[in-house]
Amino acid sequence: MAEVKWIKLMTDMFDDEKIDYIQSLPEGDSILIIWIRLLTMAGKCNAGGYIFLTENIPYTIDALAHKFKKPESIIKLAFSTFTKLGMIELIENGPIFISNFTKYQNIEGLEKIKQREKEKLKKRKQREKLKELPPENNKEPNNVPGTIPGQSPGTPSYIRSRSKNIDLDNTVVVDLTIDHRDDNITTNYYKFFNENFHPITDFERQELESFEADGLTPGAIVMALKEAIDSNVRNMKFVKAVLHRYLDNNLLTVEAINADKENHKRKNKDTKSNAKINSKAYKPFGE
């Protein structure tokens, strides 16, 4: 799952007159911590400075008091201070808005993350919609295995919903459970995880499934799990980092991953060979 992991903070933040004023208040430190937490929440929401629990459910004072582990009186004092200083806008029965949030953030980068999240959600909904189709609607045209309208019988079955030229709302698509790209490796990553890590949790299963929805084959996910084992780092944080690397480099299949590894091996070998040649060619002055 792609999400916002960082926001920008100015190095001269504490030289700002408003921040300096807040620090001078009796509860200044607590108010300042609340401000920084609001900034991080705005980054997570990635909605141009708006903060909300969900798009339809705004945060309440008591909810924020619970989240920040602060008394409600401190939350109210902080909000009153921020409002007077023009740092936030409180919309009645609506979200909190951080003034000038977009001015100091990398909006282009945040927008890309937001768009990527929308595309991921769209893919998931399409897959769920296809799974809900009655059996008769999943029949392949002309009884030719592995084909969809507009494609020849030789078209690989893995193109399916990942083809950008296919209108999934008006197209009969082949069985999504069939994928022959990774026939040479186990593709049951649930089983592999259970046998080599620990009994998989629902959260871990959903995380791995989200990467499959993004385009990685089950075999590629198994490869990432194997990398974690080979590195002796058997945790989801490491596995997710590997899976993100696969996606970023368009390494969607076992074949692509193995080819990339071989390419790196060749490069390393060439580098070592060149270094050896150069070391032999070098002779200290006077020899």
Score class of each variant (00 low, 15 high):
P141S: 05
N138I: 08
K131G: 02
G150T: 08
K123S: 11
R127L: 08
R124G: 10
P153E: 04
N138Q: 14
E140Y: 02
L130F: 08
P156L: 04
L130W: 12
N143M: 08
T155A: 10
G150D: 11
P135S: 15
N138L: 11
N142C: 01
P134K: 12
N138E: 14
V144A: 00
K125S: 09
S152C: 00
P145K: 03
L121A: 11
N143G: 09
G154E: 14
E140K: 08
G150Y: 09
P141Q: 07
K125R: 12
P145H: 02
K122S: 08
G150K: 09
P145C: 04
P145N: 07
K125E: 11
E140M: 12
L133A: 01
K123D: 03
P153W: 06
G146I: 03
N142Q: 10
P149M: 05
K139V: 02
N143P: 15
I148V: 04
E136W: 12
L133S: 03
L133C: 04
K120Y: 03
K122A: 14
P156S: 05
K123F: 09
K125Q: 13
K129W: 13
K123C: 05
R124N: 10
Q126I: 15
G146Y: 05
G154F: 02
Q151L: 11
P153T: 00
R124C: 02
P156H: 01
S152K: 08
T155R: 12
E128D: 15
P134R: 13
K139C: 06
P153Q: 10
R124I: 01
Q151V: 00
T155Y: 04
P156T: 00
G146P: 00
L121M: 10
P135N: 14
E132K: 13
L121Y: 07
L121C: 04
N142A: 08
K139Y: 09
G154Y: 07
E132S: 14
P141H: 05
P149A: 03
R127T: 00
N143I: 00
K122T: 05
P153G: 07
P141G: 01
K129S: 12
K120L: 06
N137M: 15
Q151H: 12
L133W: 09
P153I: 01
I148T: 04
T147K: 04
K122Y: 07
P145G: 06
P156D: 10
K120N: 10
N138F: 02
K129A: 14
K131H: 11
K129R: 08
I148C: 10
K139D: 08
L121V: 08
K131N: 08
R127F: 06
R124Y: 07
R124K: 13
T155S: 15
Q151E: 12
S152H: 08
K125N: 09
E140R: 10
E132H: 06
G150R: 12
E128Q: 09
G146Q: 06
N142M: 10
N142G: 02
G146E: 03
E136D: 15
K129V: 11
K129M: 09
P135D: 14
I148Y: 13
N138V: 01
K122Q: 14
P153N: 04
E136R: 07
E140P: 03
E128I: 05
L121K: 15
P149D: 01
K122V: 03
N143K: 14
P149N: 07
E128K: 11
K120I: 01
N142E: 04
P149I: 01
K139N: 13
E136K: 09
P141F: 00
T147F: 02
